[in-house]
């Protein structure tokens, strides 16, 4: 049996309704992530705000992807990957004993660095996720809504039955976003979603994120400082710990503060491009 994430949520809201504490979309406590014996991410304590965009930045290899994939248990598929500490959603530890990873991923969607549409039709790409999750409504409507939400509808409405591989890279990436939102997750994780795209496609995706923010919590990993500054509300700065050589969050604050008045010297060097 697995514990319902929602049940817990109801109980928390009902018992704590009187004292409105801040409810986070995701909260990590003392999170360590290992690949075998190798400690990749160390002691991360983050509170991700609901319906905001949180950016994770930091130099290559500092564990951004590792941390992001820990949020929806994608690391389960990596041999030897292992997690210590807690990732809380609605107060439930996602790594708890009775937690069902399929349900976790059904609630926390993900968009990957390289567009990875299924080798099926555009329509099927969206319909498949909906179908396996027991969608009971009108499929055509769902496909249209998801594509509209991903700002792709006008470009593909006449070729829904064509293979998704025929789309351009930017269109494919937006299709992947449409696919992710069609199953209506609570949170969307994005790992460098625009890194393989041209500036115009990148812009489209950034606009799209602003639009999605109204309903979804978004966590995005990016190498692009301007992008982080433009789109995100909060920013987490990651860096390798000088002693343990494991990645950790050295500073977490609202984006404006991070980019204008960072507290940590290393953050300042990094965001101003003096890192090296």
């Amino acid at each position: 049996m697995f514990v319902s994430l929602r049940e817990k949520e109801e109980s928390t809201t009902s018992t704590q309704a009187a004292q409105p504490t801040q409810e986070y979309a995701i909260e990590t406590r003392n999170l360590n992530i290992y690949y075998g014996d190798f400690l990749a991410v160390q002691d991360v304590n983050l509170q991700i705000q609901k319906q905001k965009i949180t950016a994770i930045i930091g130099p290559s290899g500092c564990g951004k992807s590792t941390l992001l994939r820990a949020f929806n248990r994608m690391n389960d598929f990596v041999n030897g990957a292992r997690v210590e500490g807690e990732v809380l959603m609605h107060g439930v530890n996602l790594y708890g004993k009775d937690i069902d990873p399929v349900e976790v991923r059904r609630r926390i969607g993900m968009v990957f660095q390289k567009p990875n549409p299924f080798p099926k039709s555009i329509y099927e790409n969206i319909a498949w996720g909906a179908r396996i999750n027991g969608y009971k409504g009108n499929m055509d409507d769902l496909v249209e809504q998801a594509l509209r939400a991903a700002a792709l509808w006008n470009e593909v409405k006449d070729k829904l039955k064509r293979n998704a591989y025929e789309l351009s890279g930017g269109q494919q990436q937006r299709l992947c976003i449409a696919r992710a939102i069609a199953v209506r997750p609570e949170i969307i994780l994005m790992d460098e979603p625009a890194s393989s795209l041209d500036p115009i496609s990148t812009l489209r995706i950034e606009e799209l994120m602003q639009e999605l923010k109204k309903n979804y919590t978004i966590i995005i990993v990016t190498h692009n400082m301007q992008q982080a500054a433009r789109v995100s509300d909060y920013t987490a700065m990651m860096m390798l710990d000088s002693e343990t050589r494991a990645g950790t969050v050295i500073e977490f604050n609202d984006t404006k503060t991070i980019f204008t008045r960072p507290r940590d010297k290393r953050t300042e060097d990094y965001v101003t491009g003096r890192f090296g």
Binding site: E103, F118, P119, G129, C176
Partner: peptide
């Protein structure tokens, strides 16, 4: 079949079986 397709399926909340039979095998 590239792993990214499996990851895409898992990230939508599919079970291993659904990913295998409905995504990987057709691919």
């Amino acid at each position: 079949v590239p792993n990214s397709l499996r990851e895409a399926a898992y990230a939508l909340g599919s079970t291993r079986f659904e990913a295998a039979l409905q995504v990987v095998v057709p691919a």
